[in-house]
Design a protein around this nucleic acid. Sequence first.
DNA 1: CATAATGAACAAGGAACATGTTCGATACGT
DNA 2: ACGTATCGAACATGTTCCTTGTTCATTATG
Lengths: 252, 252
Amino acid sequence: MGTTERHRRIADALREAHELSVAELAGLTGSSEMTVRRDLEILADQGVLERFRGGARSLLLRGEEPPFGLRAREGEEAKRRIAADVAALIADGESVVLDSGTTCLEVAKALRDRRVTVMPLSLHAANALTGAPSVRLLLPGGEPRPGELALTGPLTEASLAAVRFDTAVIGCCGLTADDGLTAYDLADAAVKRAAMASSRRTVAVAEAAKFSRTALAFVAPPTALHAVVTDVTAPAAATDALAAAGVTVRKV
Amino acid sequence: MGTTERHRRIADALREAHELSVAELAGLTGSSEMTVRRDLEILADQGVLERFRGGARSLLLRGEEPPFGLRAREGEEAKRRIAADVAALIADGESVVLDSGTTCLEVAKALRDRRVTVMPLSLHAANALTGAPSVRLLLPGGEPRPGELALTGPLTEASLAAVRFDTAVIGCCGLTADDGLTAYDLADAAVKRAAMASSRRTVAVAEAAKFSRTALAFVAPPTALHAVVTDVTAPAAATDALAAAGVTVRKV
DNA sequence: CATAATGAACAAGGAACATGTTCGATACGT
DNA sequence: ACGTATCGAACATGTTCCTTGTTCATTATG
């Protein structure tokens, strides 16, 4: 079993059982206790769990967002397909503002060899695009949130206000026809709104799981979106409701 | 011989001999021709040299700046000492704007465990500071220059204008009592000036080699500097002249 | 057209990483 | 305060990835 696979299993097991002993986790993963301890130390640093003598307890009980490193490994294949489709929606020469989040990071990778202007809203995406000779990279100012490295704050909003884009590619934590597009973080939501306000059209990206969630911070109603790109496993009821609200839904 | 050591030798040899054959470079480095070809491809991508059939010729003949990857490995020890001294000049709780360049990157590493607010002017320094729990990181907007990843342009200057710092740590390409502080890049020079204008005091960092150079873009006269940190090998004539202009010179 | 350089493909060597084991130190319950 | 269980540092082993060298078919040059 690979390291990341084991981390995922430990995090999942703790989300269900609240807390587990090191011995239980070692049995569950089939590895030694020492390895589990090393994993727990890493996951504790990421804020996934809290150590106590003999075991660990999950910190992801409520509607909180798992940390970046964990989410990046979930549904990678679906995210890549979504990203490829989004890249196909963008024409050469366009200017794009690219939201933070793991799905948008895949979009960044998909845009590396395209002739486009990109303003990424997270350092992860920025790093994915540096050194790409055909991409003109514009960085907004702001304060990178730990782990996520999403840029937020007045500097970010000021940078966005100074530029106009053809397309905004926006990620989300929840997306339903009733509640619209929602995010876990209030500051993030403000940046998403600013990015959309500076763009002619908005493309939202959302894996299937997003359609059954509504997060804390409201960003925009479905009518503000021009297209939503999701994967084929998205529930038809949810996507039909969005389509009825006038959004173009692409399942890839 | 390590890879970076070999790259350095190849670049140095070409700077002296203008152009050399692959066979000559293979003999010089004691490695196979295939390895030299692979090295030349990498260095050509970095803009260090130009390939031609049978060998390569240097592109660093004039007053041009060697690429970031090469400079980072030169005088590492001196840069680390300078960086440690600069970090000691900065008090806990201070806000600092940190210039681009390899020496300032070392300063960023030296500040990782300090309780300070830092706005780095290059993505290299920004990446060195992400994940540091005690550092409040502020990113300016701007366009990262390839390789260097130095942020420049109107967005950078606007971000700097919106904030006030206790200390500006400024790198340079040349520093003399007559010509003042100079840089290779005009856009960089404008950013340096904006950073200094937003700060109460300016600390310049300069390895010994900088005192015998004057680069294209003028940034500031010596009188605008409050302190210069350099290494012990800096020529006394140059540092004395700066001291006479009212600058505190620290040799470490 | 002949010769030399080139770069792709494969193989060997070594460095870096992940994992497991051992053992002294440390924290907890009684 | 004592005994027990947990912890994490240090070492040993296995695995993977990166670097280097060799071979050979292709390509450029005179």
